[in-house]
Computed example of a mutant assay.
Amino acid sequence: MPLIRNSHGKGHVRIMRVKRDSARHEVRELTVEVLLTGAFDASYTEGDNSSAIATDSVKNIINILARDNVGAENEEFVQIIARYFLDRYDHVSGVTVTATETKWARIAIDGAPHDHAFTLDGNGRPLVKLVATREASTLSSGILGFTFLKTTQSGWENFWTDEVTTLKPTADRMFATAMDAGWTWSSVPASYADANAAVFDAALKVFATTYSPGVQNTMYLMGEAVLAAVPEIAEISMACPNKHYLPIDLSPFGRAFDGQVFTPTDEPHGQIACTVGRG
């Protein structure tokens, strides 16, 4: 039976590139697939893997090239990947590189785009909820999956440690979350739309402009800011799962980690929740 065609490679390689050579950081989050064609027939028909490039090696190459080209535009980056395989491996005849981008937009603070704090483009699903009887009703507004991040000014230190603790403390990490939040109205604002916009402005200003010693403290301070900004809100509840960006260890390839290349991962994630009210 003839082997008609074949390809192999690595799919769903998630890369966050952070260009941080100045105070104004640039972020590019990609999901990359690389598929190779060439003289690989024997690995299929004869079980001879001597010419097969391990898919794990394909992943390592993507990570290395991401580290070495943190500022490259996406169109440039996929060409860099393809050239690497074609230049290095004579038996590779073709490379298909597909990269989809998760877009991030800068948070505007007092009308100015922030240097290192971002929200996800096309962000969140607004919601309203009314619980009503003939005697009373409670109206709340909120957002599901409102996603934002900052590339610095966040840490996690001095936490409880014992024999099961493996996490290392850090004073500089990425902070990313997809927040579910709801706020309960105690009175009617002049404009619900304007009041809801003020909620986001107040919360994101705290997030972007203050050092975060932990998600817990930042959430509380965001809640305080919202209640100060919108007097018609009685309380606000927030749930913030950590969206982890894990440093990629490229030390086997002679490259130190310098806060520029990460693996995005959603699971498992920390889940932190709180409610802040007026007392």
Rank of each mutant, 00 (worst) to 15 (best):
K168N: 07
Y44R: 06
N217M: 07
G270C: 04
T218A: 06
W160H: 15
R134Q: 13
V70W: 02
T161A: 15
M1T: 12
A203T: 04
D266G: 04
I53P: 05
T119Q: 11
N158Q: 11
I4M: 05
G11M: 06
I233S: 02
L86H: 12
T37R: 15
A195S: 14
A132F: 00
D110I: 11
T263H: 11
D121G: 00
L3V: 12
A176V: 06
Y84A: 03
A190G: 14
E163G: 04
A202P: 09
L139P: 01
A171G: 15
D172W: 09
E232C: 03
R24H: 11
T218M: 13
T37V: 03
F253I: 05
R173E: 00
E33H: 13
S187V: 04
F159A: 05
C240L: 13
L36Q: 11
E135D: 15
F146T: 00
L227M: 08
N60F: 01
S187D: 12
G71V: 02
P189R: 00
D180P: 03
R20G: 12
N158S: 10
G155M: 03
R134T: 13
I64T: 05
N63D: 11
G142Y: 08
H91L: 09
I248F: 01
G142H: 07
W185I: 06
V78A: 04
R5L: 04
W185R: 01
T166N: 03
D21T: 11
S140R: 14
A99N: 03
E26I: 08
D266C: 00
T102P: 03
V276N: 01
S22D: 03
E33A: 14
S237R: 06
D110S: 14
T209R: 05
G223F: 05
Q260T: 15
A203V: 06
L30T: 07
K19V: 10
G155Q: 06
T119H: 12
E163L: 10
S251G: 01
L30Y: 06
Y192H: 09
N123L: 02
R20C: 11
